[in-house]
Amino acid sequence: MRVLVIGSGSIGRRHHDNLQALGAQSRLLSWREAGLVGAARAMDDAEAVVIATATDIRLPLIEAATGRGLPMYVEKPLAFRPSEVEAIAALAAPVAGRSLLGYMMRYHPAVRALAGSDLSDVFQFALTIGHDVTQWRVNWRFSESYAARAEGGGVLLDLCHELDLAACLFPSLAVTGVESLGHPAFPGVDFASRISLSAEGLAGDVSMDYLTPLLHRRTTLRGTERMHDFDFAAQAYWMTEATGPRLLDLPLERNAMFLDAMRDFLALASGGETSGNPLMPRLDLCLGSARLVADAWSKRAFNGILTKEIP
């Protein structure tokens, strides 16, 4: 299969390499060099498209791809404005059942274990993720990245896997409030956000930050029958019941998630058999999660300013 990867940043290069490893004919195209005209022209020779650009320029690419009937792998988040989510949903409807949204964490063995558990007794939850953004990659500056943009940047969008996980576990969640911290050098960009969520009989929050010195990534679910305490950073997954705690063995090789997601995309795009993962992020099945992310972004309320130096 001939696949065009638009966006030559770190995630685009990863997808390009994984596609080649899976036997696809992948072409990597720089958005900065090609622009919309060049990208659209390159789609004429493709059978599928991976869109790995900054979030704020995806809509015209999605329009160009769907106009050609091409299935898409779109990096997360789908969009940051609720109106744009709806525009994409309408545009992509003809190919959405053959397309994927890039929530590769849905292939994490611990996420699949959680989603396969009985969570009917859960009444509270907390999902957290964060790390000092200045330590993310060598020879990389936050100020020069897509994440530093007021339109489409910020930590809520950048680390929205946890919001997607909450939506997977509890599909009826609604956003009740969002508290964010900003930075004087980057107006409109959230460096820490806490999203309050609720459903009938259930309340919780998702928190993310660009600030903490060491990576943390944790999911805690509290129920009347059991508690799940999953530390994704340490790969330590505990379930506690009345009989006591139990450590679950859920090993992970990180790129395996990306490979599994791309393997499913190639199967969808070609009409083949997928992995059977019940959480497979098929685009038409992910719109609820995409709406939750965009709704949270639109409800950010900045209640403080940081002084940490961010190069």
Rank of each mutant, 00 (worst) to 15 (best):
H108R: 10
D190I: 06
S172W: 15
F186L: 12
L70P: 02
S145Y: 03
R263N: 08
R27S: 14
I88S: 02
R282N: 06
R254E: 15
A233R: 15
F265M: 12
D118L: 08
T128Q: 10
R149A: 10
A269S: 12
G7L: 02
R68Q: 03
E162Y: 11
W238C: 05
V133R: 01
W136K: 09
S180I: 04
I57R: 06
D44A: 15
V138K: 12
V111W: 05
D132T: 07
T134E: 12
Q25L: 15
L156W: 10
C168P: 03
A89G: 05
L59N: 05
D17R: 09
A40Y: 08
L248W: 11
R222F: 14
G182R: 08
A40F: 11
M72W: 13
A79G: 00
L248K: 13
D229M: 09
F302N: 00
C168L: 12
P278C: 10
M104E: 15
I51A: 04
L287Y: 01
A147W: 03
A90R: 06
G35P: 03
D17A: 15
S143G: 09
K299L: 08
F170D: 00
A96S: 02
L100K: 01
R263A: 09
V189N: 07
L248F: 11
A34E: 02
N277Y: 08
L101P: 01
S198F: 09
M227N: 13
P278A: 04
A199H: 08
I310N: 01
L287C: 02
D45T: 07
R98I: 04
V5E: 07
A42D: 06
G69Y: 02
A93G: 11
R27V: 15
E33P: 08
G188A: 11
L197D: 00
R112T: 10
L292N: 05
G288F: 01
N255E: 14
A294C: 04
M280W: 00
M43W: 01
W136G: 04
L215Y: 06
L214D: 15
D190R: 07
A52W: 05
R194Q: 09
H228C: 06
M257E: 08
R226P: 04
H216Q: 12
L36G: 10
M239I: 14
V206A: 00
L22T: 00
D229C: 12
M104I: 10
G153W: 07
I62H: 03
A148G: 12
D284K: 13
G153E: 05
W238T: 11
F170Q: 01
P245S: 05
S198P: 11
G97R: 09
H216L: 12
L292C: 06
A89D: 03
T128R: 07
L157D: 02
S30N: 14
P245G: 06
L173N: 03
M105G: 11
G38M: 08
N139C: 10
A290C: 08
N277D: 07
L4A: 02
A203E: 12
T134A: 14
M262K: 07
A79V: 02
I62R: 03
D121Q: 13
A90S: 13
D284Y: 02
P187W: 08
R68A: 03
A269Q: 09
M257Q: 13
P281Q: 05
R112Q: 12
Y73H: 11
E273I: 14
V178K: 00
